[in-house]
Nucleic acid binder design. Structure first.
Length: 797
DNA sequence: TACCTGGAAAAAGAC
DNA sequence: TTGTCTTTTTCCAGG
């Protein structure tokens, strides 16, 4: 132990092997939980260092600043650590009672930790000794001052005694092996929130379960003790990665995170990260119950002085870096990454971090009770690709985490975490680590790979809303907060020793199941007709359409049977982004009249767009008016079929437009720019956002919008075959939160009268803008237009 | 066998 | 307070 960092009451097994020490976290800890009320004073004279490193787990790179958290399989063998941070060791000795008889043993650590984390322990039940020890290791040992030895002088002794007494009135809840070492003095630094601690503690001790989660009937959890440092599925890539130069750099980049024993339920995702994951139940996540008390979160600096936050010392950020001001270079004095909720530019000087291939706009996240749902994929079928431009000298470490996708600054998402995907199909090495409470993946960017990486190792884990929302201080809500961004960061060492940090984020990615999310949506296409000979190229634009999509033309009979069907040839070289060019197949028979057929875009089984009308013209080619903009549809919502009086639109200021199918609609404009906002604020412009906020057209209205005169001859045909099936039903796909409504009325249906009529029933089609319309499931196909007429009822947004 | 997917039932929450 | 509907979470089956 370096003399300058000597702490008299540190036990050898916790002594660092590195020379890097600082007093930051340690002192913070002491002050934080001191009884003197001075939260910031370094008033624990007997303690002078903040970090302890494990003897046996510091790796070669220990001389560097490294991440001290997130060890795999309960250990931290892959991480070394150093200054600017606390080490959170899970030393086997520490964990093993038999091998660790000293007062530093886990029992006392646990005691300290539990007491200390009184706020946190409200939602934690440490029946799982192992998990508790692990937590203790993280929290207590991470702060020497918080060590079991914690001197009475460290303050908080009275609380320690009290809490200790409270806790150990229930010895069965603890490992007996711990008791001999458990002393009130070992709980020196805890929150004075005695009553709360007491109450929660007493009330919640009894249960014995592996998780602090609410009881779950599911026994499928695959990660009985996942650790933040590594995927429970092994670490196939860890070895190589860690041993590589990039790995070393990676650990370097991960340094500087102090893990303070701040009560868990204080995190405010909208601001500085004061808080912890609480009640995760997942031991691995519980291990995250450490914080990075950055107080420099955008706009949040001064707002953390309330409540619990006041009780905890926030480590001055200037110990490590200064937040760059707008326009200033994102340079930092240390290799420690800036807080994850700090905005960083994607480009500076010649350096640019770019997401060359965006992820698909939809990725169904998996719950802890589920198996992995694979890695995030790109819309094109591969995986997202990230590239660092302007630098090609040495390997650098790319950090990846799951961020928010609302209109505020990007910050770690409270309800989603990145998850390392392993398996034979994963080619990219990466490590899963923890920064504060946020899981991150560390991926090497190698010069030999042109400083780019295909992100095929990143999945998304969904945390249960209840677990997160229960956290004290958590302001975000999980419900409908299902969109994320994949955020990438990288640090480039500058000649002057500073680190240039760049960040880029993906387009929003929808993470809920939403069966219709991946359905291709046709917004427009042109031309609208061609000769029966086919061969014409049709440009189809919409969302979830790619060159991988198939376009199938078909003709349905009045009974719904498919009379003819043929897949169109995709012209990939002319297709791009959200549009696809296909060659219309020839119609199968001669005709002297225009023939109305349909086509749909398919992304695979059960992933078909609604059908679009297309017309084969006899003889010479003759295009219908390519008013593709007319294809733009209004949003329809089928809602309250039995709730609304006939012809009644529940919203005021609606106007009704009557159309004869023999005419092009007078009004069928594009979705209103006043489209209702999402439950949560929309993210910055991005493909998904666009498609969601302004849902794409649907076949039904497409058809009704663009069907020319002659199409009235086959109105039933248009709706006779549900283009899509959905198990969700009309309501299942839609939310009631939409503020706008439009009524779709078909007087032809005896059961559905005109909106102007008092008889019949109005079919009110409701659609939340963030949802992809799935009119096929809304029953539109059942609408018959006996007289070729139908009505629209528009309600102003 | 483990992982990955899609679907859907059950549960929970919102209205 | 209750019923309905939406969304979340869990479970299942199959590739």
């Amino acid at each position: 132990l370096p003399p300058e960092n000597t702490v008299s009451n540190i036990y050898p097994q916790y002594l660092p092997t590195t020379n890097n020490y600082q007093c930051v976290g340690f002192q913070s800890q002491g002050a934080q939980y001191g009884t003197q009320g001075n939260l910031r004073a370094f008033d624990c004279p007997s303690i002078q260092i903040t970090s302890i490193a494990p003897n046996n787990h510091v790796e070669q790179g220990s001389s560097q600043d490294v991440l001290a958290v997130g060890g795999a399989e309960g250990g931290y063998s892959e991480q070394s650590w150093s200054r600017d941070q606390l080490y959170l060791p899970v030393d086997p000795c520490y964990r093993d009672q038999a091998l660790c008889p000293s007062p530093c043993s886990s029992l006392s650590s646990r005691s300290w930790m539990s007491d200390l984390s009184s706020c946190e322990s409200f939602s934690h039940v440490y029946d799982d000794v192992e998990g508790e020890l692990r937590d203790a290791a993280h929290l207590a040992l991470g702060s020497p001052q918080g060590s079991p030895l914690g001197s009475p002088g460290c303050g908080g002794g009275a609380f320690g005694v009290e809490l200790w007494q409270q806790k150990y009135q229930y010895p069965l809840a603890f490992s007996p092996a711990l008791s001999p070492h458990q002393s009130p003095r070992q709980s020196p630094c805890h929150s004075p929130r005695t009553s709360i601690t007491e109450e929660s503690w007493l009330n919640r001790r009894p249960t014995s379960r592996p998780s602090s989660r609410p009881t779950s009937p599911c026994g499928k959890r695959r990660s009985p003790s996942p650790t933040p440092g590594a995927s429970p599925r092994g670490s196939v890539t860890d070895d190589t990665w860690v041993g590589s130069p990039a790995g070393a750099l990676g650990t370097l980049l991960m340094s500087g995170y102090q893990e303070l024993d701040v009560p868990s339920k204080t995190r405010r995702t909208s601001g500085s990260q004061l808080g912890l994951l609480a009640g995760q139940g997942d031991p691995g996540l519980e291990e995250l119950r450490t914080v990075i008390p950055f107080q420099d979160s955008p706009g949040e600096e001064s707002r953390e002085q309330d409540g619990l936050a006041e009780l905890f010392l926030q480590v001055p950020s200037h110990f490590s870096w200064n937040k760059p001001k707008p326009g200033n270079p994102p340079l930092f004095r240390t290799s420690s990454p800036p807080p994850l909720d700090w905005p960083l530019p994607s480009q500076f000087d010649q350096f640019e971090l770019k997401l060359e291939v965006q992820p698909r706009s939809y990725h169904r996240a998996h719950y802890e009770t589920e198996g992995s749902r694979g890695s995030i994929k790109a819309a094109t079928g591969g995986h997202p690709v990230v590239k660092l431009s302007g630098y090609n000298e040495q390997p650098v470490s790319l950090l990846l985490f799951i961020g928010t996708a609302d209109d505020r600054y990007i910050r770690p998402h409270s309800f989603y975490q990145v998850h390392r995907v392993t398996g034979k199909t994963v080619t990219t090495t990466c490590q899963e680590k923890i920064m504060g409470i946020t899981k991150i993946l560390e991926i090497p960017l190698l010069p030999e790979n042109n400083m780019s990486a295909s992100i095929d190792c990143a999945g998304i884990l969904k945390l249960r809303n209840a677990d997160i929302e229960l956290k004290k201080g958590e302001t975000d809500i999980g419900r409908k907060n299902t969109r994320v961004r994949v955020v990438f960061r990288v640090a480039v060492a500058q000649p002057d020793g500073q680190m240039l940090w760049l960040q880029t984020a993906s387009v929003p990615v929808e993470c809920s199941q939403r069966s219709g999310q991946e359905l291709p949506q046709v917004e427009s296409f042109t031309p609208l007709s061609c000769s029966v000979d086919g061969g014409e190229e049709v440009v189809i634009t919409g969302s979830n359409i790619s060159t991988q999509s198939k376009v199938v033309f078909m003709e349905k009979g009045p009974d719904g049977r498919t009379l003819w069907e043929m897949e169109a040839r995709v012209v990939p070289e002319k297709s791009s982004g959200s549009s696809i060019v296909v060659e219309v197949p020839p119609y199968n028979k001669k005709t002297v009249c225009p023939v109305q057929v349909q086509f749909y875009v398919s992304n695979g089984k059960r992933r078909r767009s609604l059908t679009q009308s297309f017309t084969f013209m006899p003889g010479a080619r003759r295009h219908l008016a390519a008013a593709s903009q007319l294809v733009k549809q209004e949003l329809w919502e089928v809602d309250q079929i039995s709730h609304n009086p006939p012809g009644f639109s529940p919203e005021p200021s609606h106007h009704v437009a009557y159309y004869d199918s023999c005419e092009l609609p007078v009004h069928c404009g594009p979705p209103s720019q006043n489209a209702p906002r999402l439950h949560h604020p929309p993210a910055p412009p991005a493909p998904l956002q666009t498609s969601v906020l302004f849902p794409h057209t649907t076949s039904a209205s497409h058809q009704t919008s663009v069907i020319p005169l002659q199409t009235s001859t086959v109105p039933t045909q248009l709706f006779s075959v549900p283009p899509q099936t959905s198990s969700s039903g009309p309501q299942g796909e839609h939310s009631p939160s939409l503020s706008s409504r439009r009524a779709f009325v078909t007087p032809a249906d005896p059961q559905k009268d005109s909106p102007l009529s008092s008889a019949g029933e109005m079919l009110n089609i409701k659609q939340e803008p963030e949802d992809q319309p799935n009119l096929g499931s809304l029953g539109l196909q059942e609408i018959t237009l006996d007289d070729g007429k139908f009505y629209y009822s528009f309600i102003d947004l």
